[in-house]
Design a protein around this nucleic acid. Structure first.
Length: 844
RNA sequence: GGGGGAGUAGCCCAGCGGCAGAGGCAACGGACUUAAAAUCCGUCCAGCGCGGGUUCGAAUCCCGCCUCCCCUACCA
């Protein structure tokens, strides 16, 4: 038997799969398509092809989906398993600014790199469906969808304060700014009002929230989306400003506590502040507003130790108290803990019922009226945010919180000064960027400020050539400098100007899963038949970092398309799995300073700085260049082969769990493949060994059950067990056993499995071979060992025939435990028959 | 502060009411070898983060607590 030459085997099969189009998936109506077979759409979150290439974190999810895709093919499904590139975005543009290389060139190179690396891992993608968001035949349709959004009133322009990042020369969405710094690059950002395109995602808030319930998604992701949408039920209440015509509206979730409202707070940016501030308070108010404007949201939140705020000098009217009651007049303050962007930017403050208000009242010596008595309490605490019974609340007194809310809302409605109201934390989506490397908007601005959509037949609006990709210092996007491109003579003979903002990176990823259905269609974004057959995505695997943004945006677009009758399902991704992070070991010295991994050596069970006795501490961290603990998959493939890498990724633990890359574990899975190779190298037995046959059936049953639940690590363990069994018995497999086990192995180690299949004389690929069946009769054992417990502790074991009943079990157990049973009071006997039998004697 | 997840052998992890262990790594012993590597065979190791409770019986269910990871955070 020759040696296991993984490099040659893998190269050979990868080439064959490509040449023969093994994984090419026909669409409805195409040759080879079978309308009677079920479909399975298994999708990876497509990557941004970076210059650094793949790292070992990518293949964790890709291996998982590939195992599923290959398994489902064996099960007779028509499997859609595509791959593409989310290739617009900042890095290529920044590289262009630094080096002058066109982003398209950088992108092309990076895609080649990624494709080569992915193909070297033997993933069974249908490469004929490959797409890139930067391809104009793709973004033509991204623009086409934008037209729909615009036509439906879901895209609009607004002058909004946005995060402006000086270093990146662009605005960023709220979600792209963390702690006042850009998510990419960690540059400082400031707020600045700019004309922007917005998408009205808030119009879909309710459906985006409600439809989460039926999705087979991780609870954590659903929770994050629910929180992000942030539905809250309450009431709007109008407050008149005393001594004038002004009024303002507050939003509250506790209208029941209105009798306890002793002051109001407006956001510093609230437009009413200018008009109501009294002359003597103006200087202080202005100073406070200026200070608040300078603070980032982080600072406003972080420096929360002490509440700050200033009195405007104006007073509001608490409508529940009658004329002349001193509690009717309540002061209006401004404070930065009230945010303009949420609710109405104004709140009524009930220090007896809200901790923030209480803190504020205490700081500024404002009165507190307790209005809710907790159940069972004799005296109200100073501040009680829970429910209870209303006190000091006029017509609400004695009502429980829930009824009091309803009663108050009824009263407000009668008075015409309030109504029930639902608000959402979700904001409209800031949809424009001042960048070059993104989709141009299909928008024209007329000389008189009118806005027109580029007609469908003129799509795509392609990116113009530019020599300099830098944004202008004034915030003008680089596209504004492409004069020939920007100016368009309209049918009316007048000169229109193209929109010079571009779309954010999320745009392309909002619908790529639909383009995969029919990627070469130049008439439509996708065909109706293909959409009806393939959608929804049955399994979507990707990182948890996309829990909110990508997944919420894509759901939003999908629902709009659903409303237009362009897709047949209300949700795009039925089942979602977040693969865990592949971490890596990192090291720090006694001072806590990081020590690069390549300067550390292991010795005597400890870790030391290379060539010294200085001990370092090992911990688990993200892979990063600075820690020099990044593992390159190319090296693993070179040293052990793609099948070993795949097996290792699958064997690390549950697909959802994070685990550190431990190079010491690679030889273990590689050894398994070696053993398989040797087992097949022994040649075939004439006759099936019955014990091996039983072991194989156990293996089939376990692998099948585990694959259905994505239990790749335990499925592999079962295969290892089988190979160990066969090796230990020094028996050979017969042809049927060898063929069946090769199919089991194929989803995990496809190159090796195909090679074994070929050596058994197969001409075709194993990829579509039916999955072997486990015969239940073969899983039954003839005898079982029964633990015999005394008071729940195992004291004896007896072996009985597998079909033994309760009586037989008890008789055998009594015999074994005769010594203990003699002279003891037997209180109870528990007999558990079945596959895992047990007898327990409970003695007094 | 809120939410999600995890603590089982030296390590990675199975088990999720009924014998604590499927698999892998490491360690140790043996076989093979002139020797080593590779390979094969075998052995060692935990009472399941801590404390209560339910049960004939708890790693598993319930309550409280501790530690770690991830997300989120004055949202009225």
């Amino acid at each position: 038997m020759d040696r296991y030459d993984f490099a040659a085997i893998e190269a050979r099969w990868q080439q064959r799969w490509l040449e023969e189009g093994t994984f090419r998936t026909p669409n409805p109506g195409e040759e080879g398509f079978d309308p009677d077979r079920p479909k399975f759409y298994v999708l990876d979150m497509f990557p941004y092809p970076s210059g650094a290439g793949l790292h070992v974190g990518h293949p964790k999810g890709y291996t998982a989906t590939d195992i599923v895709a290959r398994y489902k093919r064996h099960r007779g499904f028509q499997v859609l398993h595509p791959m593409g590139w989310d290739a617009f975005g900042l890095p290529a543009e920044q590289y262009a600014v630094q080096t002058g290389t066109h982003p398209a060139e950088t992108t092309r190179r990076n895609i080649e790199l990624f494709r080569r690396q992915l193909q070297a891992l033997g993933f069974s993608y249908d490469w004929s469906r490959e797409l890139s968001t930067t391809d104009e035949r793709y973004y033509k349709w991204t623009q086409w969808i934008f037209r729909i959004l615009h036509e439906r009133g879901l895209a609009y322009q607004a002058e909004v304060p946005v995060w402006w990042c000086e270093a990146l020369g662009t605005v960023l969405a709220n979600e792209e700014v963390i702690d006042g710094r850009s998510e990419r690059g960690n540059h400082p950002c400031v707020r600045r009002p700019l004309r922007q395109w917005m998408l009205r995602i808030t119009a879909y808030a309710e459906r985006l929230l409600a439809d989460l319930d039926d999705l087979d998604w991780p609870e954590s992701v659903k929770a994050m989306q629910r929180e992000w949408i942030g539905r809250s039920e309450g009431a709007e209440i109008e407050f008149a400003v005393a001594g004038g015509d002004e009024s303002f509206t507050v939003f509250t979730t506790r209208p029941d506590t209105l009798f306890g409202a002793t002051f109001c707070v407006l956001a510093p940016e609230h437009p009413l502040v200018d008009r109501i501030t009294t002359a003597e308070r103006r200087a202080e108010v202005e100073a406070y507003r200026a200070a608040a404007a300078r603070k980032s949201d982080l600072e406003r939140a972080e420096l929360q130790k002490e509440k700050t705020g200033v009195f405007t000098g104006a007073w509001a009217v608490n409508p529940v108290y009658p004329e002349g009651d001193p509690r009717r007049r309540i002061p209006i303050w401004i404070a930065d803990y009230v945010l303009l962007g949420y609710g109405t930017g104004a709140i009524m403050c009930v220090p007896g019922g809200d901790e923030r208000d209480f803190e504020f009242a205490r700081r500024f010596e404002l009165p507190v009226i307790p209005v809710v008595l907790p159940d069972g309490a004799a005296e109200p605490p100073e501040c009680w945010t829970g429910e209870g019974t209303m006190i000091h609340s006029g017509f609400l007194d004695g009502l429980p919180t829930g009824e009091a809310k309803e009663a108050m809302i009824r009263w407000l409605e009668e008075q015409g000064i309030g109504r029930s109201k639902v608000t959402y934390r979700l904001r409209d989506w800031l949809f424009s960027r001042q960048r070059y490397w993104g989709e141009p908007f299909p928008i024209l601005h007329g000389p008189d400020g009118e806005v027109a959509l580029v007609p469908e037949e003129d799509l795509p609006v392609t990116l113009p050539e530019l020599a300099d990709f830098r944004p202008s210092p004034d915030g003008e996007p680089p596209l504004a400098r492409a004069r020939d491109w920007v100016e368009v003579v309209g049918p009316d003979g007048r000169v229109w100007r193209r929109e010079t903002n571009s779309m954010p990176q999320w745009a392309g990823s909002c619908w790529y899963y639909l383009r995969f259905l029919d990627p070469h269609n130049d008439e439509r974004p996708w065909s109706e038949e293909a959409e009806r057959y393939w959608m929804p995505v049955d399994l979507y695997v990707g990182g948890a970092e996309h829990a909110v943004l990508h997944l919420l945006y894509a759901r939003f677009w999908h629902k709009v398309l659903y409303d237009c009758g362009l897709v047949s399902t209300p949700e795009p991704f039925q089942k979602l799995v977040n693969q865990g992070m592949v971490q890596s070991f990192a090291y720090r010295d006694r001072r806590g300073a990081l020590v690069p991994a390549d300067e550390v050596e292991e010795r005597d069970g400890g870790w030391f700085r290379r060539g010294s006795d200085e001990p370092v501490e090992r911990f688990v961290a993200k892979m990063s260049k600075s820690l020099r603990n990044v593992i390159n998959p190319d090296e693993v493939v070179r040293d052990y082969g793609a099948d070993t890498l795949r097996l290792y990724e699958a064997f690390m633990g549950p697909v959802t769990a994070s685990a550190p890359w431990n190079p010491r574990d690679l030889p273990g899975v590689h050894r398994f493949l070696q053993r398989v190779w040797r087992l097949y190298g022994l040649g075939l037995a004439e006759q099936a060994d019955p014990e091996i046959e039983r072991g194989l059936h156990r293996c089939i049953a376990k692998v099948t059950a585990d694959l259905e639940q994505l239990g790749f690590n335990t499925a592999l363990a079962a295969m290892m067990e089988f190979v160990n069994l066969a090796s230990r018995m020094e028996a050979r497999l017969d042809r049927s056993q060898a063929e069946r086990f090769a199919v089991l192995l194929e989803p995990f180690a496809p190159h090796l499995a195909e090679e074994l299949g070929a050596r058994l004389g197969r001409r075709e690929s194993l990829a579509y071979e039916p999955w072997p069946e486990a015969d239940p009769a073969m899983l039954r054992e003839e005898t079982v060992e029964v633990p015999v417990q005394i008071n729940g502790k195992v004291r004896h074991r007896v072996t009985v025939p597998a079909e033994a009943g309760r009586k037989d079990l008890e008789r055998a157990a009594r015999e074994a435990a005769a010594e203990q049973l003699a002279g003891a009071e037997l209180r109870k006997v528990i007999v558990v028959p079945g596959r895992r039998p047990l007898v327990n004697f409970v003695l007094g």
